[in-house]
């Protein structure tokens, strides 16, 4: 896959925009998934993913073709997510109460939209709660946990994506796992 990507990147560098479309096709699901787990919101995840691909296109000349493209792309995406988390106002969170509606959170609003069979709702509720717990992690732990367990990347790759020393990545993963363990214990 990396080989095809390299070929496409060379075409993009020559100014062929259609070749970039194929790159987007190859990575869109992965990027949007990482963003979703980082942000906990589908809409925002799509927004940030689009932004990530556009930035990748604009800065494609700075990409070193001998390196792994996905690492570079994930770096752009995770950095955008972290920026978004930091800028985000607290009342943006899904579990925050919607103003003027007592006891009603945005989660209940989302769930009211889709009519799904019992089982699916249950598994979705579980997934939502897990997602909620991931989103509750401080962003420095969240990014490593998402990259390690959702994208299944190696510690070395994570350290390259986040520009962090390997030791720091390990420490953050340990602490992130501990934090999640405590949060998920009752589930």
């Amino acid at each position: 896959m990396e080989l095809i990507v390299k070929k496409r990147i060379k075409q993009v560098l020559k100014g062929d925009q259609n070749a970039f479309g194929e790159i987007v096709e190859l990575y869109k699901d992965k990027v949007i998934h990482v963003c979703y787990r980082m942000l906990g919101n589908r809409h925002e995840a799509e927004d940030i993913s689009q932004e990530a691909f556009i930035r990748a296109y604009i800065n494609i000349h700075t990409f070193d073709v001998d390196r792994k493209f996905s690492t570079w792309l994930y770096r752009i995406a995770t950095n955008l997510c972290i920026d978004r988390i930091r800028k985000k106002k607290p009342d943006y969170y899904l579990d925050a109460e919607v103003t003027g509606t007592e006891g009603l959170t945005m989660y209940s609003q989302i769930q009211a939209d889709g009519r799904l069979p019992e089982e699916e709702v249950e598994s979705m509720e579980l997934q939502d709660s897990i997602q909620q717990e991931i989103v509750k992690l401080p962003d420095k732990y969240r990014s490593v946990i998402v990259l390690r367990y959702i994208e299944e990347l190696s510690l070395k790759e994570i350290s390259e994506i986040l520009y962090l020393p390997l030791g720091t990545v390990k420490t953050r993963i340990h602490r992130g796992r501990e934090a999640l363990r405590k949060q998920l214990r009752t589930m």
Partner: peptide, 22 residues
């Protein structure tokens, strides 16, 4: 904890995602 985190299903990009980016 790890198993639970990994159990979350993958979400896919919407159909028109690539078009929107382009």
């Amino acid at each position: 904890t790890i198993a639970l985190v990994q159990s979350t299903s993958h979400i896919n990009a919407p159909q028109d995602f690539t078009e929107k980016v382009m």
